[in-house]
Amino acid sequence: MPIQYYIILAAALFCIGVVGVLIRRNAIIIFMCIELMLNSVNLLLVAFSKMQYTPANGNKSLALNIGSDAQIFVFFIMVVAAAEVSVGLAIIVMMYRNVHSTDVNFLNRLKN
C-alpha cells in the first residue's frame, strides 16, 4: 500500500479526534477523542515502521531492525496512554463528585 494512504487515514482519524474534542462537552467523550488521536498516531507510526524507503538513516547498527523503534514507540505511547487514562479518569471522577457533571463548561470560574 502506498504510505500516503496510511498517512491520510491517520490524518483523517486524527482530525476526527480533534473535531470531537472541539464539538463535545462531555469530558469523557473529549478524553476518548484524544485517545482516538493517539491511536491514529499509533497507526501512522506502525505504517512508517513498515515503510520500505527510509531516507538517510545512516545508522548501520540498526539496519536489521529498521522500523522496530517505531513499534517500540507505539508500545510506549500505549503505556503512557494507560497512565494518562488512570489520572484523567480520576480527575473526571473527582470533578463529578463535586459538581455531579462531566460537562467541561460547567466549571467556568477561571476566565478572563
Partner: peptide, 17 residues
C-alpha cells in the same frame, strides 16, 4: 483581549487549532 480567555476548554483548543 482578556475576553479571549473565556474559560472554555473548547474555545481554547479551537484557538490552538
Amino acid at each position: 483581549l482578556r475576553l479571549v480567555q473565556n474559560g472554555k476548554v473548547g474555545t481554547y483548543i479551537l484557538f490552538m487549532v
